[in-house]
Design a protein around this nucleic acid. Structure first.
Length: 298
DNA sequence: AGTGCGACCCGAACGC
DNA sequence: TGCGTTCGGGTCGCAC
């Protein structure tokens, strides 16, 4: 994917680095997936310790601990922002939400404050799930139930799915009077777009975030699809590049944004027209845009 | 079905 | 300095 010629000065990258500003969207989850796979493929989970029950559904926890014993990690996939650990008889779903991370430790390492789940592996390594906000979720589901389970069944198309086209979006948006910014976050239409990238996609598409989804025309829908792929592709590429510099014991890290076009740039100048970037609360979420490049049509 | 919003969390940032 | 308050992220569940 190559940016349009007249956009060559526009940065569409999201730098992955260490920092406290951590919000995994699809690109980070994909990077995490690849990194975990190199360490965990064919490793057996001997047992699992849980220090904060709400990561799982409490009522299933005892059964989950029992069922995960001696299951081998055969592969790790991704669907939207969900990580899917493919085991022998089950699939382990893991959603990092805002700040979930996986760490490699040994049993001699003290369990730290925000480490909530510990997987004891067959090579004396522990895979630990750390989550300061405790928002992340995990579910162990039977393999045959994966496709139809409640966590995945309503997810929309991946950004690169060839079925994602303007006609599909037109149909999905036709009754949606919400601002497009809000509707882009709806995972039942397109998966993987979070608050940061929604702003960036709308900026590249020159669409005002307040525009009602149902009022968008075919060209605008095409631009959303095109720029969703551009923004996410680029972020995955950057993430994959940067993560290699990490110490080998860390499977996962956060992402630090330092060259976004609009997100978190309130009162700074638009990179195209120098107009001051504004911030509005849309659907309860901070939304940043250039009022000149992203004019409201109606 | 679509909409609106609180709840879930807690560290950082801010106000006094 | 210290203490109290607000905010933010993604998603779910509930009321309308």
């Amino acid at each position: 994917m190559v940016p349009e010629k007249n956009n060559t000065n526009i940065k569409i990258s999201a730098i992955l680095t260490k920092g406290s500003d951590i919000m995994p969207e699809l690109p980070e989850v994909e990077t995490v997936r690849k990194t975990l796979l190199t360490k965990l493929k064919n490793r057996k989970i001997l047992s699992m310790d849980v220090y904060y029950d709400n990561i799982f559904e409490k009522e299933n926890l005892a059964k989950t601990k029992k069922n995960i014993k001696n299951q081998t990690i055969n592969d790790i996939k991704r669907r939207g922002k969900w990580l899917i650990f493919e085991l022998d008889d089950y699939d382990l779903l893991s959603h990092l939400r805002m700040e979930g991370k996986y760490l490699y430790r040994t049993k001699n390492d003290v369990i730290k404050k925000h480490e909530h789940v510990v997987f004891n592996l067959d090579n004396n390594i522990q895979l630990r799930y750390q989550d300061v906000r405790k928002f992340g979720k995990m579910h162990l589901v039977k393999k045959e139930d994966l496709k139809t389970c409640e966590y995945l069944k309503d997810l929309g198309y991946e950004p690169w799915d060839k079925n994602l086209n303007p006609a599909y979006l037109k149909e999905k948006y036709k009754n949606r009077s919400h601002p497009i910014k809000t509707v882009l976050l709806d995972q039942s239409i397109i998966v993987g777009i979070g608050n940061i990238y929604a702003d960036e996609i709308l900026f590249l598409s020159k669409i005002n975030p307040w525009e009602k989804a149902k009022n968008l025309n075919e060209t605008q829908l095409e631009n959303i699809i095109k720029n969703t792929k551009i923004v996410l592709d680029k972020a995955i590429k950057e993430g994959g590049t940067t993560i290699r510099s990490y110490t080998s014991s860390e499977g996962v890290t956060g992402r630090f944004q330092n060259d976004l076009n609009v997100h978190k740039r309130e009162n700074e100048k638009c990179r195209i027209c120098q107009t001051i970037i504004v911030r509005d609360k849309i659907g309860g979420r901070s939304s940043y845009y250039c009022p000149k490049c992203q004019k409201l049509n109606n």
